[in-house]
Nucleic acid binder design. Structure first.
Lengths: 357, 357
DNA sequence: GATGTTTTCGGGCGCGTGCCCGTAAGCCGT
DNA sequence: ACGGCTTACGGGCACGCGCCCGAAAACATC
């Protein structure tokens, strides 16, 4: 009594039968190759339309496997201790790679040092030289990234940006967060938690702040929220370009002495761990601390109660989707992809156990 | 100068060549079928081990496509207006179905009415009768679900539970939230937002509360948090089995009159929309409202500012993963799946635009 | 040693698609 | 009428794997 009423998903053979031609002719039409008279082409196209023909991706890729391999390249920072962050996207890419290796896809990684522009440039040149079929890049250095994007455009190589966007450039799509909203959301949390009479501090800890788009946009979003709530007078800010613990600690201690009514600290990147350490050392669990990224160090302080909220933007999924987008574009010709703005997740000590990065 | 150094992923042919047998013999060993002498079997197994042979899933499934179809069944509540919630899991399942249809998988849906146990029983019987290859169920009615699980166990049919678990039963895995932690997280948010001197209310709006595991566990989690913070005296509660607006509104109005210091309302399910409506009518944006599920009605009140936090557990992904887990188990023999506890997401007016259900 | 039975294995087809090669029909010029 | 050339199409192999059928080899029986 099985209900085997399933439609057998008509293939090329069925189309050929109905059009009274051979499969090869249908094939020519599907790939708009030459060698088919206009009359039969029309006829076949009509039948394809009618049957809503969907090529079998398995068979297609299997057949294509003989022809050659699709070669993807990824340009991203190497995951050092300082920037453990980049381990996550890499894991996502590896996961994607494992999934699609069967389809004849090969992924090469081009790592660079975030602090050395020269390493970036060198890898850009290697990528150009290697003549890949698709490229995924984290455009940390804007100028050189634009150069690479232009090269890809010229050669018709699809290119996906991740982590941060370069507005106005031609590319397949951008995969990453909307940074302004990320700051705006943090401000909302801060505002909810702010007890009467207390103030909030925006804390920037980074080598270069003025040029760092990621930080600037977040700060703007944060301030925008307080402005909307007519609470701008509650905002303080603290910047330091020294990223070691001592500089951060002494700077914050000085600030706290001058402004004892601090209730919330918002750190614009994953260096929040330094601030958490400081809070632990001065024994102030009552100050709300908001920061970024699902990293082991941050999680530890989340558990201890010194970090209250971590904002996370699914870096692993960013890597996974980046590869998959290129794959689908190249192998299955699924181009209709707009930008993918990652969710902005709130992680606390109560839900971090279930978080998927 | 292309680096085509990739290992060609040795297939059955290569194994056969090295073992000096035909591909058919290798095939017999791979599927541990009879008809191979112990000596050659050992030899072939050694080579398989050595080459770390991974069968090409595309080719495998393509070849299998002729034999027959893998038939999956899903038992879930029909998405009525009242329970729009179930639209999301269904969408996820449809997405999964579209993705794996190429692999010869057919999904049948067995809908029941959440308020009528008889419809559940009827569908259980249909499932048993239809002799499916795999089953995904939302075990709303526990007793009948156990009956179905036992039947599956007997027949060796893999079975995945979703949305809520039945502890102690044999099944492939559970996909859904950890309800206790869901309540616990809500309490944390409530506690953060609670201004001095204000109180929090647990609001249950459901036909049957005492028997509803989902609600009870959440309430327990919520209370546990306040107990840990020694703030139990700040907790009130409100229950109603009448799920219409008027009952909810008049009940809450009475409560508010008696306890004017209410600062937070925690509604344990998606009926939070009724409470939001009430807050709008009495014009009280200052009361923090926490509720469940990413539904259009709830989102509207999130935008307006009457709902502050929505807790969401990725229902769409639950459906997607449910189907995919069965698929991978049946087609690719990827059994090593433990339970998948979905993330517990916090959605506010500032990040809902980016949320993926 | 002839015949039956079991064990062990190879050949070959099919899954749906991509693509190369061959070929018949039509056209043109001489 | 014949050779050369283009156009339009069909036949057939390959991709990697599953599986059926039949054959060879080994063994058993009289």
């Amino acid at each position: 009594m099985k209900e085997n009423k399933e439609i057998p998903l008509a293939g090329v053979k069925e189309i050929a039968r109905r059009a009274d031609v051979s499969r090869a002719t249908v094939d020519r039409v599907i790939h708009n190759r030459t060698g088919v008279s206009e009359k039969t082409r029309k006829r076949i196209l009509a039948i394809i339309e009618e049957l809503d023909y969907q090529p079998n991706v398995l068979a297609r890729r299997l057949a294509l496997a003989s022809r050659g391999t699709v070669r993807l390249g990824v340009l991203l920072p190497s995951a050092s201790e300082e920037t453990e962050y980049w381990k996550a996207p890499l894991e996502g890419m590896n996961r994607a790679e494992a999934e699609i290796r069967q389809y004849g896809v090969l992924v090469s990684y081009y790592f660079f040092d975030q602090n050395l522009q020269s390493t970036f440039t060198a890898q850009v040149n290697r990528i150009i030289n290697d003549a890949l079929d698709g490229v995924l890049i984290a455009p940390i250095f804007e100028k050189e990234s634009i150069q690479l994007l232009n090269h890809c455009k010229e050669k018709g190589i699809p290119c996906v940006l991740m982590n941060s966007d370069i507005p106005g450039m031609e590319r397949l799509c951008y995969i990453g967060p909307e940074l302004f909203d990320s700051g705006y959301l943090s401000a909302q949390l801060a505002h909810y938690c702010l007890q009467p009479g207390r103030k909030a501090v925006v804390v920037n800890i980074a080598r270069k702040i003025k040029r760092n788009v990621a930080i600037l946009e977040k700060v703007e979003g944060f301030q925008a929220y307080f402005r909307e709530k007519d609470s701008e007078e509650l905002l303080l800010s603290f910047h330091t370009t020294d990223t070691d613990y001592d500089s951060v600690a002494s700077g914050l201690s000085a600030l706290l002495e001058k402004e004892p009514q601090i209730g919330v600290l918002y750190v614009t990147n994953s260096r929040v761990v330094l601030v958490a350490e400081w809070l632990e050392n001065i024994g102030r669990k009552d100050i709300i601390l908001i920061g970024y990224d699902f990293l082991s160090g941050n999680i530890r302080f989340l558990e201890k109660g010194y970090i209250d909220f971590l904002i996370c933007e699914k870096p692993q999924e960013q890597g996974y989707r980046g590869i998959m987008t290129l794959f689908r574009h190249l192998v299955f010709s699924v181009t209709a992809h707009e930008d993918y703005l990652t969710p902005i997740d709130i992680v606390t000590s109560a839900n971090y156990k279930f978080y998927r990065n």
